[in-house]
């Protein structure tokens, strides 16, 4: 009889809450708290316009963080985000210089360039067995070098095509920005891939223990290669969207996305060691970081204070739930 009591209490909690990851719940809790804090400061925080605008800004980070999450699930990291983002954007803009056909293919071309850099990363990690932190760092340097040579050699075409602008700022369905739709599609594809396909299973398996996955007959090296290629492609897509939003590509445009992308994935409960995490958490992490940045700029916090609060929030949230189990 005495044992039945805790069982009953447990059953009173709805099923979806019992199964939910505490990290995701905390992240969503913090999002609600941020919106409430913001609305105390200014009632416009609760308006649909403001929230949709935030969602639009979040979608750039969201697309990039999606690729980052895939790589982190493998237990690796992708530090080449800054210049792959910039490279994707610049190459897409560059295509406009070569006639109308090339301009029409600008977006796929930008993504293709990102995928190429991602494949280089994947080859180094999977086949040459170089730690991902180093090989992605080197790829970043190579991408930067190529872009510097490209922009310095001759005056580049750096303005975005109409299609890019439409993709980032237009609204096919009235009221819903296209960028959000792009993020939703990317996210849906990612969720399907992670939960329904062999590839997704393999990603989690490799993240837990690559040896075990290899012995179970998974071609682990190919999976790692593809994951890095996807991450590069998504970074470039993020860059294309950003270029469309700002209507031009710039050299340092990707710098502000590396650390937030990692932070968003990790705040969403994905283990930095790999093998554990869900896409819902990444969505929560992306929205959380975007809202935090927006609120800090709305209350006109100077850049110094913003950095400090940003760092303190990341560390204190991780201390709440991101801890590795203790030993002994």
């Amino acid at each position: 009889m005495s044992e039945a009591l805790p069982m009953r209490t447990v059953k009173r909690i709805p099923k979806f809450l019992r199964r939910a990851d505490p990290a995701i719940l905390t992240a969503f809790g913090c999002i609600v708290a941020l919106i409430i804090v913001g609305s105390v400061y200014s009632p416009s925080f609760l308006s649909t316009d403001y929230l949709l605008q935030q969602l639009k800004v979040a979608s750039f980070l969201g697309v990039i963080a999606t690729g980052m999450m895939l790589v982190i699930l493998l237990g690796q990291i992708d530090l080449s985000v800054p210049w792959v983002v910039a490279g994707g954007a610049m190459m897409a803009c560059a295509a406009t210089a070569y006639g109308p056909v090339a301009a029409a293919l600008a977006i796929p071309f930008g993504i293709f360039c990102g995928t190429a850099f991602g494949t280089l990363n994947g080859f180094g990690v999977a086949y040459l067995r170089i730690p991902s932190m180093i090989v992605t760092l080197a790829t970043n340097a190579v991408a930067q070098g190529l872009m510097v040579v490209y922009t310095g050699g001759f005056a580049p075409r750096d303005s975005a095509t109409n299609a890019m602008r439409y993709l980032a700022t237009g609204a096919l369905v009235p009221g819903v920005p296209n960028a959000v739709v792009v993020w939703a599609l990317v996210g849906a594809g990612m969720v399907f891939m992670l939960t329904k396909t062999r590839f997704g299973r393999a990603v989690y398996g490799i993240g837990n223990r690559e040896r075990a996955a290899y012995l179970s007959g998974v071609n682990t090296r190919r999976v790692v290669l593809i994951a890095f290629a996807i991450s590069g492609g998504l970074s470039a897509l993020g860059g294309v969207l950003l270029a469309g939003y700002a209507s031009k590509a710039a050299q340092a445009m990707g710098d502000a996305y590396l650390l937030p992308a990692i932070a968003a994935v990790v705040l969403g409960g994905t283990s930095i060691l790999g093998g554990k995490g869900s896409y819902l958490g990444t969505v929560a992490g992306v929205i959380l970081i975007t809202l935090l940045q927006s609120i800090l700029s709305v209350i006109q916090m100077p850049e110094a204070g913003r950095q400090i609060i940003y760092g303190v929030v990341i560390i204190s949230m991780l201390l709440l739930y991101g801890r590795t189990p203790s030993k002994g």
Binding site: I77, I262, R306, Q307, Y310, G311, I315, G322
Partner: peptide, 18 residues
């Protein structure tokens, strides 16, 4: 805090830079 060094130092790095 038993955090992974890579994420912990991303956070502290932001604070120091601020």
């Amino acid at each position: 805090g038993r955090l992974q060094p890579i994420v912990a130092t991303i956070g502290t790095g932001a604070v120091y830079f601020g």
